[in-house]
Design a protein around this nucleic acid. Structure first.
Lengths: 168, 168
DNA sequence: AAAGATTGTTGTTGACGACAACAATTGGCG
DNA sequence: CGCCAATTGTTGTCGTCAACAACAATCTTT
């Protein structure tokens, strides 16, 4: 055999100080992402993780997660909606919404009222407690939104909302 | 009971044709999101769902998901990294990376080579098969990226990448 | 050499999306 | 009218993913 480190699989070395083939580099700081940078999905994923974590932390004192907040907001703005309508509007599976509403109803924030027009469906309403609570949630959500501004800049946040306005 | 649909909880109607209190509106088209619009997190979540679904579909023929793609890309660009380094760089739990690598190793795309410097860690490399496969994956990923451009516009995509460049 | 930290691994928990099946009810159509 | 298809809420399963906790093997520090 030749002296050139076998490589029985017969491929060219990946053009980047691949070296001996068993030398782990740690650091994790100077690692190039190369092709990964330039992928919109990757950037969006990382940002979405950050933004959700900040939301969860900022609304941690009231124990409200982003999805719960969106449900409460939609019901608050459109009382009487059916579960199907809420699910469709928010892009949530109606099966998933069942559990979300179970939780929110247990916490006395939401009521399911049996509709008389369509006895299959429920008309969703905020309770009195739910409305006052939502006011507080909105205040905390606004605080979270300010964190976003502080992170990416007021101008950039506005641009972001404009660019993604088609997905709401 | 009176004719006014009880409302024993005694609250004012939430200012929007709440009406009888048990009238579900369907449609799901003309539902106002009100406060939800204007939340960066909501727009980003919806967009992220869309973009991932397109990625999964576009790379469906090769059965590669976004996270798998990111792992392959980083390893391909930085051969010899340890699992810890990859996990830290991509913001993945090292526990999660174990399963990801199990899968990729079964498919002969990645090799775990026991390091001689630090016998706790593994040096990660693409196999020959993995390198040629990654080339194809990148071509499909570029196609996916063109879908994104078609969806939000070339200019907006560039702006998005610029705004979120701090999260890569 | 002993104590503490790191690496890979296994396991659990909980949120979440995707599906499938089901009972009750409604609506369409012959 | 009566029957069949569709809709609504519900329950359940499966797979992905983040967050922890615990552990053995190994390194590092003292």
């Amino acid at each position: 055999m030749t002296a050139t480190a076998s490589r029985a699989d017969g491929r060219h070395a990946p053009r980047k100080r691949a070296g001996n083939g068993a030398a782990p580099r740690d650091g994790a700081d100077d690692i190039g992402l190369d092709a990964l940078v330039g992928h919109a999905g990757y950037a969006v994923r990382r940002f979405q993780i950050w933004i959700f974590q900040d939301f969860i932390k900022t609304l941690g004192e009231v124990d409200i997660r982003p999805t719960q907040y969106s449900v409460l907001t939609v019901i608050g703005a459109n009382p009487g909606l059916s579960q199907m309508a809420v699910a469709k509007r928010l892009g949530i599976e109606r099966a998933r919404l069942v559990h979300l509403l179970d939780s929110l109803e247990q916490r006395k924030l939401v009521k399911r009222i049996k509709s008389k027009q369509d006895r299959r469906s429920h008309a969703l309403h905020l309770t009195a407690q739910g409305e006052t609570a939502l006011t507080k949630f909105k205040r905390l959500a606004a605080e979270h939104e300010r964190h976003v501004e502080a992170k990416i800049g007021k101008e950039n946040r506005a641009q972001l909302l404009r660019i993604l306005s088609g997905f709401t």
